[in-house]
Design a protein around this nucleic acid. Structure first.
Lengths: 129, 129
DNA sequence: TTGCGGTACTTTACGTTGTAAAGTAAGCGT
DNA sequence: ACGCTTACTTTACAACGTAAAGTACCGCAA
């Protein structure tokens, strides 16, 4: 039955690509938070992710509602200051997402075998093997 | 001048995450096409990516308009058959996208250094270093 | 030859969502 | 007191993903 098909029903469906995380702005935010062990301020994130105020605000809300980040409002030098940290659950889901991402890369790397021009892939090897 | 900031303006902005490609369905489609050296039929893609007909149709159109894939309509056993292949330009942009993806993973992996519970990252090492 | 069903898509319509622009509030300098 | 700046929040709109409905064509059966 169907020997011609490259087989593997849904093999490339990547259901692990969580919609909440799989969005450039939010992926940026979460990666920033993961990569820096201490919490980041609103402005830190705004700069690191090159986001506008409104944009960041909205995405943070989405992440907060999804319980991926925790938002704490405080003050610094008499100015309001929002600091964000990733939650335990957020870290877990982010890592699950990441492993799916790695599967994508792994799948794509299979082309290196018999694709012409795949020399391009050479400067694509990640995590400094 | 802001010594406190983790520095790196826009370091996590990931502008290489092309909107056309950075969408689950389309990322699936392109990865399928990249990973399989021969062109795939509409039905191949439908199954491999677990997409509905309408969904696949629309995304293919988007990819075609962006000149990332080429769509050829032919016939097989007197039935219409659409086959798709990635274009040279598509391959190029896909690889650029992928390298940004790898940067994300690399950035995230930096947490492994001083984050508690980062043991989770162990089963996350990609491309079998 | 006229239905009937199935395959292979395409089009339409809707609800969600990302984003920019406008809005709010409060501190600070003059 | 006044305006300027910082630090966000809210609003409004356009774009987009998705499912459901629609089209077209073939093969088979009555």
């Amino acid at each position: 039955m169907k020997p011609k098909a490259p087989s593997g029903e849904g093999r490339f469906a990547y259901e692990g690509l969580d919609r909440v995380i799989h969005e450039r702005a939010r992926l940026s935010i979460l990666t920033s938070l993961i990569a820096n062990s201490d919490p980041l301020t609103f402005n830190d994130l705004k700069q690191m992710c090159s986001l506008t105020d409104g944009n960041l605000s909205r995405h943070l809300r989405v992440l907060e509602k999804a319980q991926l980040v925790q938002i704490l409002k405080g003050h610094d030098r008499n100015r309001p200051q929002t600091v964000c940290r990733i939650t335990a659950n957020g870290r877990k889901r982010y890592l699950e997402y990441l492993s799916t991402l790695e599967q994508v890369i792994k799948d794509a790397a299979d082309l290196a075998k018999d694709q012409p021009g795949s020399r391009l892939l050479r400067n694509l090897n990640p995590l400094r093997a």
